[in-house]
């Protein structure tokens, strides 16, 4: 990787996209201080608090660990903050569950909750949507965006899912060993470098099945009628489990 420089702003989302082996993960590992760059420097404000959501991780089943306890492993925490953080990410109901029993989407929210405990000024996420189904992905990105608006932190995110990401991001950086292009989502998706890397393939190869349900499922799997935008805020639970 070479000639990479980037600027992050509070309250904005920067998404890094690029093919496998492009150096996306290396970039954030260097930023986080987990890996030393061969040359070049990283300047971070010394007081900068970073929240980190790593790639999907497997936790040894031999360790008995509840969700609440996992989140409490964060270095700076107290019980009030933990409860608040679990509530903000919509996983309060999972707090006594074994961490190994969660689905991909639930686990990402747990990681998000733990990152929030750092009271981050910058949130760094490495492929947060990996192992999450499509509906869960859209919800997760919306959640991240909403939390960013509420707390005002900057977000640096790595992603594969080009189209879902484009909706919720302020700036896109297309990386393949160097920065191919960067800018507003609309500019990037029409940039020749972007098209050379990703082509029209996602749009042509995938048919988007646009359809409408008259209900949604919240995190607990309950059917929710009405607006699907923020299922965790809805108190309108329909117990009949009937599908439209």
């Amino acid at each position: 990787m070479h000639d990479v420089s980037l600027e992050l702003q509070a309250g904005k989302i920067l998404t890094v996209i690029g093919p496998n082996g492009a150096g996306k993960s290396t970039l954030i590992r260097v930023l986080l201080g987990l890996q030393k760059p061969d040359s070049g420097e990283v300047w971070l404000k010394s007081s900068l608090r970073i929240g980190y959501v790593p790639q999907k991780i497997a936790i040894n089943k031999l360790m008995p660990l509840t969700v609440e306890r996992f989140v409490a492993l964060a270095k700076y925490q107290n019980n009030d903050d933990i409860a608040k953080s679990l509530a903000e990410t919509g996983i309060t109901h999972l707090n006594q569950q074994a961490i190994q029993s969660l689905s991909g989407g639930e686990f990402q929210r747990v990681l998000l909750a733990r990152a929030l405990l750092q009271k981050p000024q910058l949130l760094i996420l490495d492929e947060p949507a990996q192992g999450v189904d499509v509906i869960g992905q859209a919800e997760l990105y919306e959640k991240i965006s909403a939390l960013k608006d509420k707390h005002g932190f900057g977000v640096l995110m790595i992603s594969h899912d080009l189209h879902l990401v484009m909706q919720n991001t302020d700036q896109v950086l297309c990386l393949n060993q160097h920065i191919c292009c960067s800018g507003q989502p609309d500019d990037v998706s029409s940039h020749p470098e972007y098209l050379r890397l990703f082509g029209d393939l996602p749009a042509e190869g995938l048919a988007v099945y646009t359809h409408q349900h008259d209900h949604c499922h919240d995190l607990q799997g309950n059917v929710v009628t009405g607006s699907c935008r923020h299922p965790e805020h809805s108190n309108n639970h329909n117990e009949t489990n009937e599908h439209g």
């Binding site: 970073i50 980190y52 492993l73 270095k75």
Partner: peptide, 13 residues
Amino acid sequence: LSLTVHEELARVE
């Protein structure tokens, strides 16, 4: 305990 669960997360924290 923290580094046993996830070493990089512990290090970042």
